[in-house]
Amino acid sequence: MSLLKVENLDVFYGDFHAVRGVSLEVNEAQTVAIIGANGAGKSTLLQAITGLNTQKRGAVTFEGKDISRMRADLIARAGVTMVPEGRRLFGSLSVEDNLRVGESTKRKGPWTLQAVYDLFPRLGELRKMQSSTLSGGQQQMVAIGRALMTNPRLLLCDEISLGLAPKIIGDIYRCFDAIRQSGVSIVVIEQNVAQACHASQHIYCLLEGRISLEGDPRKLAMNDITAAYFGTEQHS
């Protein structure tokens, strides 16, 4: 059974029709990547799923329930959360306080403060630090840990590798296996196509608000992906 099903979704960003008739599916314990150029509508799509963007029509079904009209905080309580683009930590709060805001969904599950510190041992050492003083990679770990603290069934990650050193990106993607094994499905937005293909079992390519290509990244040809990414030629 699919965990998340998006059908024929249109989303507006102000007056701009950013997402046009997108349908996609995420299965249990699966990692799905959404790739596409800047302005293709990737972030707007995730914002619509989480309920932060309310200018939308179409169906969003999570665990068989329609969440397309639900308030954002109730969607989070139902088990969908997001690591937002640019991390957006609570800058004046300590690392531990940032993580504990994630307890607000009151969902039970494997993710506790200790579990997050086991996943990112560095955060345990930095727990009393003010989050705005951390390096980019450390902040990204806090952002992921904060989302995990909600004990989600579905974790959406918006551009988590943006502006980070390659070694740190590797570290962060490596912990995805542990997250998936705890029963969490993951959707990542990536600009780095190779990274996205490597990390996921299914990719969707967005071009000007529409899905231009989808499939198993191991079965797709790199040429087709490039074409769908940039819209340089027609494809089926």
Partner: peptide, 21 residues
Amino acid sequence: GRIIRATADDHQVVQLLGVNY
């Protein structure tokens, strides 16, 4: 208090964590 400080920092992101701002 922690939730109030977090909401003051970013009232959108707290919603992703289940807080009705």
